[in-house]
Design a protein around this nucleic acid. Structure first.
Lengths: 243, 243
DNA sequence: ACAAAAGTGTTTCAGATACACCCATGT
DNA sequence: ACATGGGTGTATCTGAAACACTTTTGT
């Protein structure tokens, strides 16, 4: 915070929040995108977001936008600040800095059109990284930062459970890791590591009957937040991921 | 980014950058603080910082403030964005959001008064956590976030070398870890772990003669940025840290 | 009976810990 | 000679990886 008058005036600007909302659908990491109805970038895909209002905290603005886009109320999705982006030329409308947030949640019901009647839809992250789906503004960079954050957090925290609807099986949880990291994991060793980390998952004493195969025990999230030891991304199985 | 007009207007606001500048002096983690010359919080200690100027990128503003406060030019200090803080009531002067940056550097020459002629001084982080030195605004929270970031980055990256002036010894590097983590480490095992991580440090083939004891080999920073495997904070030696 | 997925056992190996020990220098 | 910190060797232990194997269900 400055304590003396600057020689050049401080910039007056507008603040926005943008959301990188991830889920795992069809064994793929997907992100929620909207189709822009207005210029600039009209018709292109973009991250959902909006302006911060007067008297509104940044986290509150992010929660509000998240609810508007997904219909999810309260804090049932994981939401954390990702990074602030403020390059002068990042928005042709003027000096707009955006605080990007990362949200992780289970496979949500196809998101309704929000209060803005914007068409929102899940898009595989791989199709954006491929360049098949270009994003407006600097949103591809924001998405890449969010992806790296998510991948890293899976190693050191129990946040993967945020992707699962309770109750879930160990295999459900493993699918999250495989989709986010893009590698296959050894089911046996994955199970052991999860089970030995106290507070990661809690058995509820029931089982889920799959279409085929042995029933799997069901769990809910535990109280632990950090993984000690971490789950290493290098601990992949030799088999490749199903495409 | 929003695509339709909002019912309530977006907030017009001012953006600032604040710096958490860490160094290790006298085997203690210390942070650079300024004494505020103006209201609010006149006379209290605060993190150095200032407003973002028109047409100025956030990273640029942080670099400029860092140079003004420490006299360090260019990118000889590690500088990364920490977090954005934007609670409506965080600054009594109005709606000011701040993008906090974390800077890590070697024991710098006692910082000059910056271009603002502000009295800047190194302060042990412990004395702030103790509550002995209260900070203005929400700066104590920012400092705590910066501390946790620094502690975490030491585990997974080679950033500890940013604290060392080149050339440095393995013991110098170990002192960084001990000061930031606040624990003692086993010198033998620390050395082995550092040496076996390729690209962490590079021997320059010279030695430093200490006042007493065997000369130590000298190193400079390597090209590696990530630590695989990580250095674990739990790998403490049984002996306690010297107070 | 068979397929499929859940879950267990076990061998092997890499790395961390603890600590004894040796090395190189100044006094 | 001895104190001091740098640096090496090594026994032990823990946990990860690989993969064979058993269990439990539906068809």
């Amino acid at each position: 915070m400055q304590t003396t008058v600057r020689h050049r005036p401080p910039a007056s600007l507008t603040a926005a929040v943008d959301l990188v909302i991830f889920t795992v659908r069809d064994a793929q990491l997907q992100v929620l995108l909207i189709e822009r109805g207005n210029t600039p970038y009209q018709g292109e895909a973009a991250l959902p977001g909006g302006f911060v209002r007067e008297g509104e905290a940044l986290d509150t603005a992010a929660q509000r936008e998240l609810q508007e886009e997904t219909g999810v109320v309260g804090s049932s999705l994981h939401l954390e600040q990702l990074h602030a982006y403020g390059d002068p030329g990042r928005d042709p409308r003027g000096r707009i800095i955006t605080i990007a947030y990362l949200a992780l949640g289970p496979d949500l019901p196809i998101p309704q059109a929000g209060t803005d009647a914007i068409a929102a839809h899940w898009t595989p992250v791989s199709s954006i990284l491929d360049g098949q789906v270009p994003l407006a503004f600097d949103h591809e960079g924001i998405l890449r930062d969010g992806l790296e954050r998510a991948r890293s957090k899976l190693e050191h925290t129990t946040i993967a459970t945020a992707f699962c609807r309770e109750p879930f099986t160990i295999a459900d949880l493993r699918q999250i890791y495989e989709a986010v990291w893009g590698i296959a994991l050894d089911p046996s060793n994955f199970r052991r590591k999860v089970m030995k980390t106290r507070g990661f998952v809690v058995p509820i004493g029931e089982r889920r009957l799959p279409d085929v195969g042995r029933p799997a025990a069901l769990f809910r999230r535990g109280v632990a937040e950090t993984l000690t030891p971490p789950l290493t991304r290098s601990g992949a199985s030799t088999s490749s991921l199903p495409s």
